[in-house]
Design a protein around this nucleic acid. Sequence first.
DNA 1: ATGGTGGAGTGTCCA
Length: 258
Amino acid sequence: MKVATFNANSVRSRLPLLEAWLGRERPDVLCLQETKVQDPDFPERFFRELGYHVVFRGQKAHAGVAIASLAEPTDVRFGLDVGGPPDEARLVRATVGGIPVVNVYVPQGQSPDSPHFAYKLEWLGRLRDYLDRHFSPREPLLLCGDLNVAPEEIDVHDPKGLRDHVDFHPAARAALERVRAWGFVDVFRLHHPGEPGQYTFWDYRVRGALERNVGWRVDHIWATPPLAETCVRSWIDREARRTEKPSDHTFLVAEFSL
DNA sequence: ATGGTGGAGTGTCCA
């Protein structure tokens, strides 16, 4: 089973890239974030014509998540159901080929003194509650998405200078670590231990960000131990960030011997 | 240099 995650930064703006990439890579599952489209306008037929089922939940202008899969998804649910706002456009879960997949778009947070950042920390806390409520780390489970946190110093281009950034703030890293400690293995790191400069996001606003590799590893595929054991490969497709009309993120892929 | 670019969708918010 081949699984990918991609923050599209508008799915409708990324159709040419998605058509080429899905045609070439044919993942069994593709998790999308920041689809930026309300449900009636989601390009459902585009995925169907490429041979994919797709489930999605969006809202006006921002956020939005989707799961595209070759096999028909079951047990499709949206949002956090652990008290507080469900935030349906930031979490979708579906079971594909017997494997439950949770796809999330964690709030970015704007700045450490913003209410958005408090909401981000609370959101990660509720994600941990959600896992406690619905799943067991002893069973196969995937958590994929734009987690909007770089876990370690090697996951950002300037760990000293970025300590106050909401995606590398100690409080954000601690909140993410509580989610990971529920029982996940970061399958990219499993296959690339200690390797710096492996990023999934390069800011549009930074001149020559890709060429200079001024990036962040904020997109992740995490698996529970019984599933992580079957992970044979994980890689980042940097070429997709180099295309004519790229997202500011690129694809992260993990392959399992299932 | 407290900027910069991109996307959604009309006002600016969000990243």
